[in-house]
Design a protein around this nucleic acid. Structure first.
Length: 489
RNA sequence: GGCCCGUUCGUCUAGCGGCUAGGACAUCGCCCUCUCAAGGCGGAGAUCACGGGUUCGAAUCCCGUACGGGCUACCA
């Protein structure tokens, strides 16, 4: 009896797509694609207080940005919907009914306050803090009458007395075993009739024929409870795989304090989706003993739960940044231009029409820039001098370079020699300018830095001769001339 | 308190009874060089949390301990 792999990612729209959630989604997606299975996206929005449509939209957007596509779920097809838990209440009601019929649940009339009080006493006494099952002892006829009378109650599962250890095989951690005696009769349905997480999740995973539950290990201890519900429902128990957590640099839960914690925040900081995907995939999984850089298709071809590591990982922005640089450098010039454009547009430096009009010019620029940035947001500072006139010269650069002795002569010589240059390409510009230091008997470094600061406004720029060629003769000469007034001969 | 999980260079990891414990990021040095990068080469960095076992032999298997984490909610 082999059936197709069906996995799901089930975020709660209580916030944006978190880094940890993104990794869980990536692993689920990769696992589904690897096995030719189905990737289901389900929105666990049973908490009306904190769930919003904006968050749902943001999560979908972030998943798509990462390049993850789902076969079933919001804005997709699927025969197992609806894929929002708030639209599945009739399913939970039906499941509850079948549990009642099977005598697997009972109503509990204890008030939340009373329970909290009891728990507190038990805790201070150092004893068992779970529910004491007092309502389980109420005769069926009595509780039925109280339910009929409309007395507030929750529905609790009856943990079987003789259940013994609840064991299951975790695809990542191996054999897991939990004594059922340590499990209390947890709540499935609240006073207001809504299902709790451990109930809704099981009903949905069963309904949606999920074969592998791959999720964070904060749910590891919930798994035996959920297995109890699967059993009470008479449903097939899926396979489980629990991923360890991702922590911030201080070993604490990853949050805004550690910098960006959401996928879209990284997007906004200039990270490429393929780099973030690569990094996140690597944070807790390895292809082999040496492969670090790979793309989504390589991940899909090689992904396996067996190679997911058991220990928690600390999110290392430095490595992500390096990896982002690597992915930027693999972009072709035209791809790079496409990715760069939004950043330049945002600053009002250029637009799509300009790119179309000067395609060749941009193609020459692209590799000069892509080779020296790690985040896309850096393109702005790197190329602004090519788009803005006049340039704003960096003050310390002016003092340290332009006002240095010899700078004035260098600029004058450059102007003099470039004025007569007909072919203004990088090679010609270089050949021409190389003559300046020789002629003035100055160090090449001194001459070129002076020219660089005059032309780009900064001591750091793309390669000088290429930059000058891209800038063009007229603007280059004008800038050299403008800088001259500050220069020390 | 109870139940459960985890622990290899600063960080991510490889390792699944016999390795000089491998790779990557970060870091340091050198080379390249018009700046910054990129790239190349090399260095330093891990008594495999600790203590007991099992074994001819343990990072690998078993048992404790410590530390970290999760669950123990009418949150998910």
């Amino acid at each position: 009896m082999t059936h197709d792999v069906r996995v799901r990612f089930a975020p709660s729209p209580t916030g944006h797509l978190h880094i940890g959630g993104a990794r869980t989604a990536i692993y689920n997606w990769a696992f589904a694609r690897r096995h030719g299975g189905t990737f289901v996206l389900r929105i666990d929005d049973t908490d009306p207080e904190r769930s919003t449509e904006e968050n749902t939209a943001a999560i979908l957007r972030a998943l798509r940005w990462l390049g993850l596509d789902w076969d079933e779920g919001p804005e997709a097809a699927g025969d197992y919907g609806p894929y929002f838990q708030t639209q599945r209440f009739d399913r939970y009601a039906a499941a509850l009914q079948s549990l009642k019929d099977a005598d697997a649940v009972y109503p509990c009339f204890c008030s939340a306050e009373k329970l909290a009080e009891r728990r507190e006493t038990a805790r201070s006494a150092g004893g068992y803090v779970g529910y004491d099952r007092s309502c389980r002892a109420i005769p069926a006829a009595d509780s039925a009458a109280r339910v009929a009378a409309g007395e507030p109650r929750v529905w609790r599962v009856k943990v079987p007395e003789d259940r013994g250890d609840i064991t299951f095989m975790d695809a990542i951690r191996g054999s897991m075993s939990f004594p059922s005696a340590s499990m209390d009769d947890f709540v499935l349905v609240r006073t207001d009739g809504t299902p709790t997480y451990n109930f809704a999740t099981v009903v949905d995973d069963a309904d949606m024929a999920i074969t592998h539950v791959v999720r964070g290990d904060d749910h590891l201890s919930n798994t035996p409870r959920q297995i109890l519900v699967f059993e009470a429902l008479g449903e097939t128990i899926p396979a489980f795989a629990h991923l360890s957590m991702i922590w911030g640099a201080d070993g604490k839960r990853l949050s805004k304090r550690h910098g960006a914690a959401s996928v879209e925040a990284y997007r906004d900081e200039g990270y490429l989706p393929e780099a973030l995907l690569n990094y996140l995939a690597l944070l807790g999984w390895s292809l082999d003993d040496k492969t670090t850089v790979f793309d989504a298709s390589t991940l899909v071809e090689n992904f396996s739960l067996e190679r997911v590591s058991k220990n928690p990982a600390i999110f290392d922005v430095d490595k992500l940044e390096w990896l982002n640089g690597v992915h930027i450098r693999t972009l072709s010039p035209s791809e790079f231009i496409e990715r760069m454009l939004p950043w330049l547009e945002k600053e009002g430096l250029t637009d799509a029409a300009d790119v179309e009009a000067r395609r060749a010019w941009f193609e020459e620029l692209a590799p000069l820039v892509s080779e020296r940035i790690k985040r896309m947001d850096e393109v702005v500072d790197m190329v602004a001098f090519l788009f803005k006139d006049p340039i704003i010269m960096d003050e310390s650069a002016r003092e340290k370079v332009i006002m240095k002795e010899g700078a004035g002569r260098s600029l004058d010589a450059a102007v003099g020699i470039l004025t007569h240059l007909e072919t203004f390409d990088a090679a010609s510009v270089e050949a021409t300018l190389r003559a300046v230091p020789e002629q003035l008997r100055l160090k090449p470094k001194l001459v070129f830095q002076a020219v660089r600061v005059a032309v780009t406004g900064s001591t750091v720029s793309p390669p000088l001769f290429e930059s000058i060629a891209l800038l063009g003769k007229a603007r280059t000469l004008a800038r050299l001339h403008d800088a001259h007034i500050w220069a020390t001969p």
